[in-house]
Amino acid sequence: MDLQQYKAEDFILNDSFVRYCLRSNEKDVQFWEDWLERYPHKQEEAAKARDMLFRLGLRITPEEKEVEFGKLKAAIAVADTPVKRISWKRIARIAAAAVLPLAAATWWLTTHHPAAPAAGNESYTLFKAGDSLRRQVMLADGSLVILNAHSTLKVPASFNEQQRNLILEGEALFEVAKAEGKPFMVRTGNLQVQALGTAFKLRAYRYDEQAAVTLVEGKVRVAQETAVAELVPGEQLTTGKAHARFVKNKFDPEREKAWRSGRLVFHNASPDEIAATLGYWYGINVKVITRKNKPIRFNGVFNNKPLNEVLAAVCFVNGLQSVTKNDTLFVQPISK
């Protein structure tokens, strides 16, 4: 039968046309796209056939799916602000009304993470840095937080109203914006660090029995149980996580600078150095085990790379493999 005579029911009974609709064969797709472009007067019947095919197959058309996907993207863009429930009707309206501005808004919202929590009396906004990547959080007062891997920052909804209180688990660097009369306070367990216009780092991982406060600039007051201490720039204070055991040390400013910039450098590193650096960097417990008689050294530079990439490099070069057991990551010879 001549294609020019085709009606919807003929199109749908043409196997090649069906494959074009379902996009299951590239050649058929090519053929029908060309053909329909050449004979635009057949497009209406073909569209009818296509619609019928999807309905009879209990399938959703790609166009309908695209609309749904648009709604999802719009919802995801605003999902990180605590709103009770998303109204799909509202989103449908937005999506239908303005596709382009919406795309722009989606981009804006996803690239500019909303830091300010919106509602609720005792609600928190949670920021979590995942397994191996750190995360930057800009707080409502303009302070910047670099949240290290495996760390969680709780920001109360009332943050920056009268007070600036935060709760941290793990490790983060705080670059505190100056704000008169609004003390900036970070709590982890019973340890509190208070600051006014300063940059400091607090580390208190769950696996670690120690906590550490590192002061880059400005001034902080550290309080735990009955102990209180003030730090000056360049000083690091370590203490027990459960009970105060304050010890002050000088820290290596170069190491902090490198941490801040996200540049991880191994220079002729021994197994112990590798373990210590990875633990310091990614907030995990690491043990590097090597075969006797096979000393290893590792060189490498990583810029903001996730842990798995760094591990892959370390393992590949030295013929090792990594295994996670409980809280600890073991880097060990490949077992045979």
Partner: peptide
């Protein structure tokens, strides 16, 4: 609606 709902839920609870 149900499909989009679950994906938004998962995204919200991803951490």
């Amino acid at each position: 609606e149900a499909i989009n709902d679950i994906f938004v839920d998962i995204w919200r609870k991803r951490h």
